[in-house]
């Protein structure tokens, strides 16, 4: 493909999709780390939040061509696209501040499962529609609580990504919450499916509500738990199901420590297959 035909700026070398291609999403942003900010801690937070988003986006993308209606398919794909956009910015930021100089593709495609720091709930298989919307409600309630607080972070890049992300994730939460209510308030079958989904997500909730991902950057302990308690009670009352708030988590190593379910390596194998088969490919 001729660069000129695409009208790609010379400086960007015509790179466009994987391996190829996406231009740096932080292109032209001042990348200096402010004094007093611990670059390693900043990178850890960015990677964890990006991993939640990338893995969550991949699960949502699995609905494409399989959703019950085309509107639902578009909605799920668009939620995934929002998350993918957040992941790209956060990986890029992490590579700038962790001293490695890695780009977003290196984070997304060349790490093995134990190097990922996503919550395990995000990596569980797609499940049915009830599981999908319930998981989205759980993860977006928690993510929103973290992003709301990181919007005031000392690092201006993370703060800007978080501030923009708040509007996006608040919308994901509303979309998921409204569907949880419709399923809970729908037919006998939809209620049965929703109740089954509650049972399926329950073992993984502790890691979500007691997540300390932003603690080193000033996200108060208990902020995520309080936000989840408020949101889930509200949705549960409308939907006629109880979304249990788990007892304080026992801190057994979980996704944030690189301990994952058997499902993550399979997801990553598919996600990175093109990148591995054609390293550095450009088209």
């Amino acid at each position: 493909m001729n660069d000129e035909a695409w009208g790609v700026p010379e400086a960007e070398g015509g790179r466009w999709a994987f391996g190829t291609g996406f231009a740096d999403p932080l292109h032209g942003v001042d990348v200096a780390v402010p004094a007093g900010v611990d670059g390693a801690e900043l990178a850890r937070v960015c990677v964890a939040l990006a991993d939640d988003a990338l893995v969550g986006a991949q699960r949502l993308a699995e609905w494409v061509t399989r959703a019950p209606e085309i509107e639902i398919e578009l909605a799920l794909a668009n939620v995934g696209l929002d998350l993918l956009g957040q992941a790209r910015l956060l990986y890029t930021r992490a590579g700038q501040v962790d001293g490695s100089g890695r780009g977003e593709d290196a984070f997304a495609f060349t790490r093995s499962a134990p190097e990922f720091r996503c919550l395990r709930l995000a990596e569980l298989p797609r499940g049915d529609f009830a599981f999908t919307v319930l998981r989205l409600l759980v993860l977006s309630s928690a993510r929103l609580a973290v992003l709301e607080r990181l919007a005031g972070a000392a690092d201006p890049v993370l703060a800007a990504v978080a501030e923009r992300g708040v509007a996006e994730v608040a919308y994901h939460r509303l979309f998921a919450a409204e569907w949880v209510v419709r399923l809970g308030d729908g037919t006998a079958e939809s209620r049965r499916r929703l109740r089954r989904a509650v049972v399926e997500v329950e073992p993984w909730l502790g890691e979500v509500v007691d997540d300390r991902v932003g603690a080193g950057l000033g996200v108060a302990a208990g902020a995520v738990r309080a936000a989840c308690a408020r949101d889930w009670r509200r949705v549960g009352e409308e939907a006629g199901v109880r979304l249990p708030l788990p007892a304080p988590w026992d801190r057994a190593p979980g996704g944030r420590a690189g301990v994952h379910t058997e499902h993550l390596p399979v997801l990553l194998a598919e996600l990175g297959s093109v990148a591995r088969e054609h390293p550095g490919a450009a088209w």
């Binding site: 695409w6 009208g7 700026p9 960007e12 291609g21 996406f22 929002d82 956009g85 790209r88």
Partner: peptide, 17 residues
């Protein structure tokens, strides 16, 4: 507009051109 806007690189290229 959106962090995940797939048109972002294209917009930047159009402006530069």
């Amino acid at each position: 507009t959106y962090a995940g806007c797939p048109a972002l690189a294209e917009i930047r290229a159009d402006v530069a051109a």
